[in-house]
Every structure is written in C-alpha cells, then in structure tokens.
C-alpha cells in the first residue's frame, strides 16, 4: 500500500489507550507495514487528556498526524472525541465510546461538560457510537473496553485479516488472552 493511513486514539489517562495502540501497532508490523506511533508520557498519566497516533503504510516519515489527516478517530471517552475532531480528515470515521469522565473543572462546576456530544459528532463525520463498557461486560469484564474499541477500529479500517490473535497474545497477560480476543470480536461485530 503506497498511501499512509492515520489513526488517532484518544481518551483519558488510565483508560488503556496505550495497550490498545500497542496491540494495533504489533498487528500492523506483523503484516509488513512500516509503522510509526507517537504518544506523550509524563504529566498526561495524571488523569489528563491523552492521545496516541499510529501511522502505517509502505514508508512513514512523520510520527505525528496533522490537522484534517486522521482516517479514523477512536475516542475512549465522549468529550475527548470533540477535542480531536479537527484532526480528522473530511471523509474520516469516528468511533466513540459512550462513556463520560468528568474533569476537575466540570466536577466543580467551573465549566460545563458538553451536551449532545453524539449528535454533534454525527453532524461532523461518519460516527459509530459504542457502549464499549456494556459490550465488554457482556463478554467478560468492563476492563477490556479498550479492546472492544480496537475491534471496531480494525473493522472500519478493513484490517480484519491481520493476525489479531497473535498481536493480542503478545501484549496481554496469558490469563486475559481469551477474554480480550472475545472483546475484540465483539467490537468488530458492533460496527458491522
């Protein structure tokens, strides 16, 4: 594939965006793509807004995705999807987890948490709203909601044929491999 594809995963520190992007990058490397992935460590671990950028194709230069360039935006938290919409290409997809995490300013009432997020997103781009926590709970544990979202991403990016079983096995503890594989499948099915 000549063209470089761009994926943006965002959420709140502690939601497992990094594990999901690790599985994704592993599967892409295994499939023979050149891959670059960028994330920022440090302060963002303390409950701040986090995002990981994954780029893949025949040859990738910049590890960073610019404005209007992401083919897909996967948001682990509702409002975070709004924050990164400007990175999405005009014909890009949004996968958004129907899950809200208050911020220090919205909890204390200094700022309002935005209303009607899903409606706004749908007006902006092709949006898939997932209740990833419910889907993950159904297959085992709410904790694997990050992998549910990854499954949806794989489907929409037409990456179903990658060796996801191996990528999951390489990134999670042995006792959680099966449950994560189930979560991944459930995520794929949720957007088909």
């Amino acid at each position: 594939m000549e063209e470089v594809k761009n994926i943006l995963l965002c959420g709140v520190g502690g939601q497992g965006t990094i594990l999901a992007s690790k599985i994704l990058a592993n599967a892409l490397v295994d499939a023979g793509f050149d891959v670059k992935m960028s994330e920022i460590h440090g302060m963002s671990q303390r409950g701040g807004s986090v995002f990981t950028q994954v780029r893949y194709g025949k040859k990738v230069y910049s590890p960073i995705i610019g404005q209007g360039s992401a083919d897909i935006l996967v948001s682990f938290e509702a409002m975070e999807a709004l924050r990164y919409v400007s990175n999405l290409a005009k014909d890009g997809h949004i996968v958004v987890n129907d899950y809200r995490i208050q911020t220090a300013t919205t909890a204390s009432g200094k700022e309002g948490y935005p209303e009607n997020i899903m409606e706004t997103l749908k007006k902006k781009a092709n949006t898939y709203v997932l209740d990833a926590a419910a889907i993950a709970t159904k297959v085992g544990t709410a904790k694997s909601m990050n992998v549910v979202l990854l499954g949806a991403l794989a489907k929409l990016m037409k990456l179903e044929d990658l060796n996801w079983d191996a990528a999951i096995a390489a990134c999670v503890k042995p006792q959680f491999i099966d449950i994560n594989r189930e979560a991944f499948k459930a995520g794929m099915n949720a957007v088909s």
Partner: peptide, 12 residues
C-alpha cells in the same frame, strides 16, 4: 469545529 466547545482536562 468553530461550534465545538470542550472543557479543559488538565492533569490532576
């Protein structure tokens, strides 16, 4: 995105 407003989410 001119009509989109988000709340700040600083590290805490």
């Amino acid at each position: 995105v001119s009509d989109i407003q988000t709340a700040k989410r600083p590290p805490v």
